[in-house]
Design a protein around this nucleic acid. Structure first.
Lengths: 166, 166
DNA sequence: TGACAATGTCAGCAATGCTGACCTATTTTA
DNA sequence: TAAAATAGGTCAGCATTGCTGACATTGTCA
């Protein structure tokens, strides 16, 4: 009557499985951001600058408000970052043609170059992971990440990432 | 001879696919951390406290050095966080039996309770995503996340998450 | 004993985020 | 047309989380 291990407990397994997901997410994000952060230091910029640069490049001509809704930070935070990027001419702005209150944001050539430099390593990391795991895994990866989003965000994000620029 | 769309360019598609991954990662992590951050505010703690709490709960009795190697921050950063958690009796320490320089870290009952409270929402988020996407997707998700890690980290992380506590 | 390891602590600094308050230009609406 | 709403900026102040560097303590081990 010697039990070497308790009978499988589905609730326990489930909890364990969830925690493994949480941890993998932490570890992957930690490594994913590390290299770009290092490069950013050379340019005396921070991760927030990279995020702004990335999404301005991704959605050229978007307004400050739109960028805000993507990053989910306050306008005071983004304002500081945008000021740096404008001063250093990584980003330029044009007032909207329909609504002249809007500032529409674009990368300069300089900005495109920096953005590529920063994102390249991250792309390579994804390329490696995708190559190693195959198309089915990638599809699962994408589905689960979409599932992790706030439900209210999903449709919007799905649309946003699918049509690249706009 | 009217081409409505350019011929599929595999290199372009690839780049696009990689960027979609990068973005999904950003969006998912943003939403994943948001709720716990809100709860942390009520307790006057920050995300770093949650991370420490989480991993101390996950690996009871680990040393400060081990925690450091997981979080990849400096000892000065972790020290501040641990001081708070010790003062507020979420964490307790016992000096190592073999090597008494080591501080072995454990959650108190209070700490376990807080950790559960903080992690629960995140678990629920994962549970929802897993439920919605199914076992195959989850497997792909896990594989890709592992693939995103620094190669040098993979074996260690894989082992660490698989045997839960130790 | 002396070298090394694990840890802590102090000081100072920077990036990022927050809130609140207030300002301007412009557009929309009653 | 006047009032309200919107897009955005800015200033001040504050907290958290990191970082570096320097130095101290306490053990272990050769």
């Amino acid at each position: 009557m010697v039990e070497t291990r308790p009978p499988a407990n589905p609730l326990f397994l489930r909890e364990e499985e969830l925690r493994q997901g949480i941890e993998l997410m932490f570890y992957a994000y930690r490594d994913f951001t590390f290299e770009a952060d290092q490069q950013l230091k050379h340019h005396k910029l921070g991760r927030a600058h990279h995020r702004a640069l990335y999404f301005i490049g991704r959605h050229p001509g978007q307004t400050v408000g739109h960028l805000l809704s993507i990053l989910k930070v306050t306008k005071q935070s983004i304002s500081r970052v945008l000021r740096d990027l404008l001063e250093q001419e990584y980003v330029e702005q044009k007032s909207g043609s329909r609504d002249r209150r809007e500032r529409r944001l674009f990368l300069t050539d300089r900005g495109v170059k920096l953005e590529l430099e920063l994102t390249e390593r991250q792309s390579q990391r994804f390329a490696r992971a995708y190559r190693e795991t195959g198309a089915d895994s990638v599809e699962g990866f994408r589905k689960v990440l979409l599932g992790l989003l706030d439900p209210a965000e999903r449709a919007e994000v799905d649309k946003r990432i699918r049509n690249g620029g706009r």
